[in-house]
């Protein structure tokens, strides 16, 4: 239940502005891949092209191809809604639905799509997803209370539970810990190492220690300056990127010489 992502010469545009240039990368299944780089270098934009979420912004479009186990996400006749059912996403700020209870939030993917499911299966799915997100013990007695009453870290884990309840092939995480305290961050990092047994995980982070801790592969993005597009500078096993990178810019960024 996890798929390989390959992109070749992917360019992302916002109207006339080219935000990301010529990214070619292969993301292996059952692993954590981290994108690092300075702000505005296009790593979040690139992440969003992996489940066509960038299309939410008017004027955004993509050139090139993204292959999910060989199937092009941008091929003719591809429905972005179907893509997103296979490639789930967790956002920077926890965003549980305020009108729904904890349980309804986990089942949101089922209920919002008008899919029917027997009640026993629903309860199973809620427990499985919440256990998968390490949240079950904390909320099992208040499943019918609003999700917005939880703490920030719990809300983020609720969002992860909501994403994995859809049983996606790939889980994209856009700076999932940047709004959280160190304890909640640790909980989510532990969760990532468990989840990678089943899913392909891609994470964008500003925290280099986090990338070093959780990821198997690290990709470094950079921009030449304001107004120029972001580029993939180097990608490789995390150990190698953090100890002996091939490119000077990567070493400068990792050792804190700029950025």
């Amino acid at each position: 239940m996890s798929k390989r992502i390959e992109t070749t010469d992917l360019n992302v545009y916002y109207g006339n502005f080219r935000a990301v240039e010529d990214v070619t990368i292969t993301i292996e299944p059952r692993s954590v891949t981290a994108f690092i780089g300075p702000s505005g270098c296009g790593k979040s934009t690139f992440l969003r092209t992996l489940n066509r979420m960038h299309e939410v912004i008017p004027g955004a479009y993509v050139e090139g191809e993204v292959l999910l186990d060989g199937e092009n996400l941008y091929g003719p006749g591809v429905d972005p809604v179907r893509v997103r059912r296979q490639v789930g996403m967790v956002f920077q700020r926890p965003n549980p639905f305020p009108t729904m209870s904890i349980k309804e939030n986990v089942l949101a993917g089922i209920r919002l799509n008008n899919r029917r499911m027997p009640k026993a299966d629903q309860d199973d799915l809620v427990e499985r997803s919440l256990r998968g997100a390490n949240l079950w013990e904390e909320v099992k007695n208040r499943l019918d209370l609003p999700g917005s009453g939880l703490s920030g870290g719990q809300q983020q884990r609720l969002c992860i539970a909501r994403a994995i309840a859809m049983e996606p092939q790939v889980l994209l995480m856009d700076e999932p810990c940047s709004a959280l305290d160190p304890i909640s961050t640790l909980a989510i990092e532990d969760l990532m190492s468990e989840l990678k047994e089943q899913y392909t995980i891609v994470i964008v982070t500003h925290n280099m220690q986090q990338a070093a801790r959780v990821s198997d592969v690290t990709a470094f993005f950079n921009i030449a300056g304001t107004g120029s597009p972001g580029k993939l500078i180097e990608v490789g096993p995390t150990d190698k990127i953090f100890s002996a990178p091939d490119v000077q810019a990567t070493e400068d960024y990792i050792s804190g010489r700029f950025g």
Partner: peptide
């Protein structure tokens, strides 16, 4: 907008996102 994005990321079509979120 985050709520709309959350729904889209769960593979919910736009009209259902409007009606149900």
């Amino acid at each position: 907008n985050e709520l709309r994005e959350a729904a889209y990321a769960l593979g919910v079509p736009k009209w259902l996102t409007i009606v149900k979120v």
